[in-house]
Amino acid sequence: MSRPDRLFELIQTLRAAPGPRTAQDLATALEVSPRTIYRDISALQAMRVPVEGAAGIGYVLRRGYDLPPLNFDTEEAEALRVGLAMLMRTGDGALVRAGRRVRDKIDALHGPATWLHVAPFGAPMDDPGLGCVPVAQLRQAIREERKLRIDYRAPEGETERVIRPLVLIYHVEVKMLAAWCDLRADFRHFRIDRIWGCETLEESFAGQGDLLRSLWAEREGAEKVAGGAA
């Protein structure tokens, strides 16, 4: 998370808090260190954001301070709430946490909508404690066009591959990673729940991502047409 985004998140977290929040609480919520929170609080105060409090006691945002409102009408806000709730089905822990932060911003501006519920059943959460690869690591590698070395446990056996990750596909009960496989010199799909080891390599494929995704999309479209005509 960039510093401007973190400062925005910090303001929103303080706005939504019913009382003072300690630096440790804020650090946990934003996944940074308390020292970073102290620096960010000082930066906000220097920008005349009315944050009051002290280390060891807690911080509050003085009433009346607000950020520009989100320009969503009622149905747009409800569409966002339902879509954010459905992130639970992806099993992507980082996206779920980000969705909760967005939901809190919407609640702060429009009030909560306790009557909207979405069943959370879907793909299992990517819990690193269970040996699962964090989907956030895969998304970051796609954005940065960095190669990955993965340990993949398919039904026919375990294999190690170096891949160029291209597309994440969230199915109802499983997540898939579409990638260019250096070993096979072709596109391959990997079930994320079968990736039991993942290392982001220094080697990059910068500038190739869009072209490879375009070729992958053409291949997928052709296969779907062929499958439908069979």
Rank of each mutant, 00 (worst) to 15 (best):
Q140T: 13
L138S: 09
V96D: 12
D40E: 10
A206E: 15
L215I: 01
R139Q: 14
R63P: 15
G197C: 04
W180R: 01
Q24F: 01
L95H: 10
Q137M: 09
G93C: 08
R143E: 15
R103H: 08
T90W: 07
H110T: 10
G93D: 06
L26C: 00
M86F: 03
Q140C: 04
V167K: 10
E31Y: 08
T36W: 03
D151M: 10
L166T: 06
L10F: 09
P4L: 07
R39C: 13
R153V: 12
M86H: 02
R219P: 02
I57V: 14
R39H: 14
V225N: 01
G227W: 11
L166A: 06
A222Y: 08
A185S: 09
L109H: 14
D25S: 03
A217W: 08
F190N: 01
L215Y: 01
V82Y: 00
A85C: 13
D5P: 00
W216M: 13
A54Q: 14
L211D: 09
L177S: 01
V60K: 06
A230S: 12
P165S: 10
L177N: 05
L109F: 04
A55H: 11
W115Y: 15
L14M: 05
A23K: 01
L7F: 02
I169T: 14
R48K: 13
L201T: 05
V172T: 11
A77Y: 12
R21V: 00
L70R: 14
G56F: 10
R149Q: 08
K105H: 02
G227Q: 08
D73G: 06
L80K: 03
I57D: 08
G19D: 10
T36I: 09
Y38R: 11
K175Q: 13
R164C: 05
D127R: 03
E223D: 14
D25F: 01
R213Q: 15
E158S: 11
P112E: 12
R35D: 12
F205E: 10
M125L: 15
R153H: 11
K147Q: 14
V82N: 05
I169G: 12
E173P: 02
L87Y: 07
G157D: 12
L201Y: 06
R6K: 04
H110G: 04
F190I: 02
G228E: 05
I150T: 02
R213E: 07
A108E: 03
E173T: 15
L183A: 07
A229V: 13
T36R: 14
R191K: 10
G93A: 14
R6C: 04
D182A: 02
F8R: 12
A141P: 00
R62K: 05
Y59H: 07
E173V: 09
L138H: 03
E156R: 11
I57Y: 04
E31R: 15
V96W: 09
Y59M: 03
R161M: 05
W180D: 07
D186K: 00
D186H: 02
E156N: 09
I11H: 02
M125V: 12
P124D: 07
L67I: 02
A136P: 04
E78S: 07
T159Y: 06
F72D: 09
V102K: 08
S33N: 07
Y38I: 03
T28R: 14
V167M: 05
Y38F: 12
W196F: 08
G58D: 11
T74Q: 14
